[in-house]
Design a protein around this nucleic acid. Structure first.
Lengths: 124, 124
DNA sequence: TGACAGCTTGTACAAATGTACGATATTATA
DNA sequence: TATAATATCGTACATTTGTACAAGCTGTCA
């Protein structure tokens, strides 16, 4: 089994990667259209980010007509895990509880979410 | 009221900032000693990071003997809020639920934590 | 089949990041 | 009051990031 060490994903790249996952597969155009209004970046920039993600091994592409269609090359789980852990380490020394508390305090989750959480946490 | 726009905190800086908060106030030395074993970086590097954090406005310092004692200049709440929101936007499009679910699935929180969450979420 | 529209590629570049060396200043101490 | 030990400060530098232009392909449609 090939144990490849994936390079880190930069913040800007992370967003692009997420959009590709969300679209399942996407051309540069499609990613551009999916960008949140707040964060409008140039077509060329999106292109470069996609290129870099491919070079790093997070995306692959095949060709449809003249366009490149990008799609994930590693499970998003893996990337998310890494990102969350890094984030947690840096900001909270690895302890997830303060993060959960923060989210709860700021009203980002409701009772239903918590039920779901309870179910998941209990099951484990 | 002076509404100053704080520059972003880089990942490496974030970790240093957290350590200062944790120690309440600290010299370069003390921050170095507090570094997790996994992440041993040079004294000089820690110094630079502290300096940059001060220049950006996140830290101040006073002098004790020949050493600089750094301490926070803005509420950690504020920094955490920004960091979490950025992170959430990039990786989950701003939706905190998948993050909570991820944390729960990976057994990072237990029943007590969830009770606490419920209390907090309910109160809001 | 030729021109156009739409894409990719190569290249560029400033700013931010991560890391560190050497020189200078300061404290404590012998 | 020299001196050794310890800090800071200025500076440097390779990478990575964020952003973009210009040139060259490639289908497509008149």
């Amino acid at each position: 089994m090939t144990k490849r060490k994936l390079p880190a994903v930069s913040p800007a790249e992370t967003e692009i990667l997420r959009l590709v996952w969300q679209l399942d597969k996407a051309t540069v155009q499609e990613v551009c259209n999916k960008l949140p209004a707040k964060r409008k970046i140039a077509y060329a920039t999106v292109q470069t980010l996609l290129r870099r993600l491919e070079k790093k091994g997070y995306l692959k592409h095949h060709t449809r007509g003249k366009a490149h269609v990008f799609f994930g090359a590693v499970k998003s789980e893996k990337v998310i895990k890494r990102s969350v852990n890094d984030f947690l380490d840096r900001l909270f020394g690895g302890d997830p509880v303060p993060l959960m508390l923060y989210l709860a305090e700021h009203g980002k989750i409701d009772a239903d979410d918590i039920e779901e959480l309870k179910r998941l946490a209990g099951k484990k």
